[in-house]
Nucleic acid binder design. Structure first.
Lengths: 153, 153
DNA sequence: TAGAAATAGTTTTATGTCAAACTAATATGC
DNA sequence: GCATATTAGTTTGACATAAAACTATTTCTA
């Protein structure tokens, strides 16, 4: 079988970079997810805990902006964390539409437990690249990211 | 608030590269997903169609290896594509455990319709990088990917 | 060759994810 | 001031995803 569409040079260059980047990112996700799963946390749950740790209590819309997820999804993830008493919702008295979401003591403890190992894992994975290579990778990814904000695909 | 864990230089280099790579990849996913959604296809559904187009009929285990997803997930995605008559399951006569999954004519038509635009979108996004930069990005991502296969995080 | 191990696939359970419809509260404009 | 916009959050429906338990079939092995 092995059919394929015709590819010009610019196409195959772009496609190759695309597939390599996607694969690298998927591998990173798998690795980090595996570690977080030891603490029964998903990536999104950890992202919420980490965000609240760094920035303090936030409303759900703000959380959504930080972790780049939809409103409905934030409701789900926050529900699952609240059920485990890792975070708390508090209705804002002034504007009852808002809920302030804050880490509980238990949630903070979880961040302390998980975060250092999380960082160490990432450092270990990236240690196959020299510092210069890490900078260059970051630069290229940033350039790629910026260019997309304008484009509609 | 703005609390943060202490970060050494190697840590912040790795973390910076990590976050930039994840973000770039997420942006790519959003862009491609938006296009595919116009044809009511998810990324996984398209990945299955594309794989079957390139390699011909495969069993579900093989599909799972190609698109890097679990057995159960392949069942789900294949079900959803089969419901729309884009693919067909055929029980293997020799070994009844296997199902050969093949594109239907309708599925092939879908690939022809979607693929060129899909490629064009990727090329457009990556056009913000020079060919040399695209090569370098691919090289760094590949290096990162390879290093992970050995490591347990 | 009969029982055990392995294999392909499905089902179940729990979570994530989005979009769209919805509710409740606040802000705006005439 | 009241009708209308907007905004924060929830709910719903459809799909994705993994892990684990399960079924059916085949292979291995003693």
């Amino acid at each position: 079988m092995k059919r394929t569409f015709h590819s010009s040079k610019p196409e195959s260059d772009a496609l190759n970079a695309y597939i390599k980047l996607i694969r690298a990112s998927e591998n990173l996700s798998v690795a980090t997810h595996r570690h977080l799963a030891d603490h029964d946390l998903t990536s999104s749950q950890f992202a919420v805990l980490e965000t609240l740790y760094h920035l303090g209590p936030l409303c759900q819309i703000e959380i959504g902006k930080k972790i780049q997820k939809s409103r409905g999804n934030v409701t789900t993830v926050v529900n699952n964390l609240a059920r485990r008493k890792l975070i708390e919702r508090q209705k804002d008295c002034r504007d009852k539409r808002f809920s302030q979401v804050a880490l509980t003591d238990l949630g903070e403890k979880m961040v302390y437990e998980v975060f250092p190992h999380h960082i160490a894992g990432i450092v270990r994975i990236f240690s196959c690249l020299t510092p210069a290579e890490q900078h260059e990778l970051a630069r290229l990814c940033r350039k790629l990211g910026l260019s997309q904000q304008a484009k509609t695909y």
